[in-house]
């Protein structure tokens, strides 16, 4: 029998694609031209987790004579380093598809940078959902749970698609603006990612309960929605408002 998490993972992928695909389609002016970018980010989470982050932790751990596999039992500075490692690595990796020429050529304006960034972030998150499902499937602790017992995974992954998208959009807009905006965009994306991960770390430290984590997640989603809307308005193409034909029946 296949691990039950894979069933929920398939549902999650379908729902995420429908929800965020529909969202991007409607908000980007009913265009499908960004959708092929969804493929590019899929393997990046596995690459980040299996190779880059793990190797970085081993190298730093060996240099400082700390066992990298100690988790939260390690020295405080090393735990802090590992918490920071995720945003530092992932935010760079998420924009790596822009090294492919056709992908970069799509970033023609700040508005297109927003949508390219959002799609790359969603793509990364979809890959991450599969990677997490794989990791859960390796853990015997979850083997007895039926697929419908993983709704927490579904909810969290649905939200994560959006948050990853917003963080990447912040960075890609920074890149498009050029100069100092490039490191500023990166730092902003890393900071948002770090802020997003704090409740999970606090939960792992057993400082807060899972209920508190869930409430914070909803608040965080609202904050990211505000950030997205501000980004969208800042790159808003004035033509969009004028494109709609208008019939005035009466004015007084």
């Amino acid at each position: 029998m296949i691990p039950q998490i894979y069933v929920m993972s398939a549902i999650t992928l379908l729902l995420s694609l429908a929800l965020w695909g529909g969202f991007i389609y409607l908000f980007s002016g009913r265009t499908l031209r960004y959708f092929w970018l969804l493929v590019l980010g899929l393997p990046l989470s596995a690459i980040a987790n299996l190779y880059i982050k793990q190797q970085a932790a081993i190298i730093v751990g060996q240099a400082a004579h700390v066992q990298p596999g100690l988790g939260l039992a390690g020295p405080e500075w090393f735990v802090g380093f590992k918490v920071l490692l995720t945003p530092l690595v992932e935010e760079i990796l998420k924009i790596s598809p822009l090294l492919i020429r056709p992908a970069w050529k799509m970033v023609t304006s700040r508005a297109s940078a927003l949508w390219v960034g959002l799609v790359l972030g969603v793509s990364f998150a979809l890959g991450e959902a599969v990677f997490i499902a794989y990791a859960v499937a390796q853990n015997a602790q979850y083997a007895s749970i039926p697929w419908y017992g993983f709704t927490g995974y579904l909810n969290e992954r649905l939200m994560t698609c959006f948050t990853h998208g917003v963080m990447t959009a912040v960075f890609v807009i920074g890149i498009k603006r050029g100069g100092w905006f490039i490191p500023m965009g990166y730092l902003a994306a890393v900071s948002l990612h770090f802020f997003l991960n704090i409740p999970v770390v606090l939960y792992q430290l057993q400082w807060i309960s899972v209920e508190i984590v869930n409430i914070i997640a909803v608040v965080t989603l609202c904050i990211f929605a505000v950030i997205f809307e501000r980004l969208r308005r800042s790159v808003y193409d004035a033509n969009e408002a004028e494109n709609s034909h208008e019939i005035v029946y009466m004015r007084r």
Partner: peptide, 30 residues
């Protein structure tokens, strides 16, 4: 003061707004 037909543009905020239905107070871009 005015009556006009218009295509509205979306914002992320909404109350009840789905294809084929829009209810209550909704912020629109334009």
């Amino acid at each position: 003061r005015t009556i006009r037909r218009k295509n509205l543009t979306m914002t992320i905020w909404s109350s009840i707004r789905f294809p084929g239905i829009a209810l209550f107070k909704i912020p629109y871009g334009n």
